[in-house]
């Protein structure tokens, strides 16, 4: 089992060592892109609204339920 895992790891390591120039470039782009997406956009611009605003699913359900049953032409004031 360990032999198989080390062969697989060696296969990947070899592949990365012998990357062509375009391969290196696209890997750099992938890493920069993932960093921008997860470390900047996700953290600072795209928090999960319901997770951030409410502590549990019950509160989230109540909030969304409130949103679903309220609309501009619904003024019966029952809720």
């Amino acid at each position: 089992m360990i032999r198989i895992i080390s062969r697989i790891a060696g296969f990947y390591a070899d592949g990365f060592r012998n990357l062509s120039s375009w391969g290196r470039k696209v890997w750099i782009i992938i890493l920069i892109k993932l960093f921008i997406m997860f470390a900047i956009l996700r953290l600072f611009f795209f928090p999960d609204f319901l997770n951030k605003k409410f502590g549990n699913d019950k509160e989230r359900s109540e909030y969304v339920l409130e949103q679903l049953i309220n609309s501009p032409d619904n003024h019966d004031g029952k809720h």
């Binding site: 375009w22 696209v26 890997w27 782009i29 992938i30 892109k33 993932l34 997406m37 956009l41 996700r42 611009f45 795209f46 928090p47 999960d48 609204f49 319901l50 997770n51 989230r60 359900s61 969304v64 949103q67 679903l68």
Partner: peptide, 26 residues
């Protein structure tokens, strides 16, 4: 090249679901 540049660009749509379209996502 196309696969590598395009990979994960769809994840941004999922970010938007949680932030901008939370009623819908729920």
């Amino acid at each position: 090249i196309n696969f590598a540049i395009g990979v994960a660009t769809g994840i941004i749509l999922e970010f938007e679901f949680g932030t901008n379209w939370s009623n819908y996502s729920w």
